[in-house]
Design a protein around this nucleic acid. Sequence first.
DNA 1: GTCAATAGCCTTGTATACAAGAATTAGAAT
DNA 2: ATTCTAATTCTTGTATACAAGGCTATTGAC
Lengths: 221, 221
Amino acid sequence: MAENIVQRLRDEIENGIVTNQFSPGERLDEMHLAKQFGVSRTPVREALMQLSAIGLIEIRPRRGAVVVEPGPHRIYEMFEVMAELEGMAGSLAARRHTDADRTALLAAHAKCEKSAEADDSDTYYYDNELFHQAIYAASHSGFLIEQCTALHRRLRPYRRLQLRVRNRMKTSFNEHQAIVDAILSGDADAARAQLRQHIAVQGDRFSDLVATLSESKALLG
Amino acid sequence: MAENIVQRLRDEIENGIVTNQFSPGERLDEMHLAKQFGVSRTPVREALMQLSAIGLIEIRPRRGAVVVEPGPHRIYEMFEVMAELEGMAGSLAARRHTDADRTALLAAHAKCEKSAEADDSDTYYYDNELFHQAIYAASHSGFLIEQCTALHRRLRPYRRLQLRVRNRMKTSFNEHQAIVDAILSGDADAARAQLRQHIAVQGDRFSDLVATLSESKALLG
DNA sequence: GTCAATAGCCTTGTATACAAGAATTAGAAT
DNA sequence: ATTCTAATTCTTGTATACAAGGCTATTGAC
């Protein structure tokens, strides 16, 4: 029973935030969480600090931790940066990928094809993560891999929304095809452009979604 | 006396790491640090966790915290990513800068010129930070500003070494001039390219430096 | 009736005590 | 003498106790 408690708490709370069990703006009471998970406040505090470092919550002195709501604009900005980083990863991957990278990328790509054809958005969501991880790995830049993985994780909940949009899965898969071609043919510039576009479009989609939602909210209100 | 203790500890220890008072690989004893700063272990632990989140130290379960030595290759990778992010910031700045951004950028640029002419590397080091911050701010992307600032901070110690290199300050200032021209003329692509190059060259310089050092070490050993 | 001020409670921040695992040292055996 | 094992000690991980600041509710005054 090592430091795993903190890790477990961190994952549980993070999951709770991502799945909206803890809503944005909600105050996270240390004692309440401690009771809920059957531990003392100490590990809870440490888990909260980690989440604060990730950016999922905000800790104001003497006023506790609240779940951060990034806001549509901020999320769009995050997609913009993600697009740039993924583009870089793609560019490096095109230049540096090994046979093993190639195999892994094609395997993930095949999985995506399968779940896209089955129209299974949950599975596609998962396979899509593998696909992007394969690209990060092929970049052979340890630091870039870390940065991409962290941001990818951070954007997870907002990406998930989008696969529900009509035809998005098929479109996504077609974009993947172009990305794979560019990387495996060693065309760094094309790989960068394709990946950047592939991610940026998600930011756009997200904006559209928000616009639609706030419009309907305005109509309702 | 709020949560400031943790912040203070974090800054002090971070500073200690950056200034090599705590050498890479050194083990950071919680109790020792607590005594040294006249506090209990609790805030020390929390400060250490924050540093761990930043990436300056590594905490292994039940085995304490050690100062991370990124290693030359990892540092080079970090400069690579920084180059990309700064390029992005420059690109956005070229498209989005306001009159206020323009004023701030020119002011920082003028300061750099002054300290470069005075051959004052300490001041130039500081003014250079202002210059880059001005670019980040002009990008008007809050998330990008945060990411750039964090990585810039993380690379601070390695950048500092380089200004000592002969003529680096003058060269750096000339590059700044090209960057300013590109941004203020609204040429996003040029701004991106210039900034990317400006940062990437620092990674190269760092590699050269390391190569030189390890060579002389090999000769000595 | 409403607003402001004060008091009490509730939550966070810090310290200390307790538990458990890892490292080191000492002793014994080969 | 060297190596392996065991025990002790030292450090980390967790819990609880104590301190301090903010929030809320209640009461009084306008």
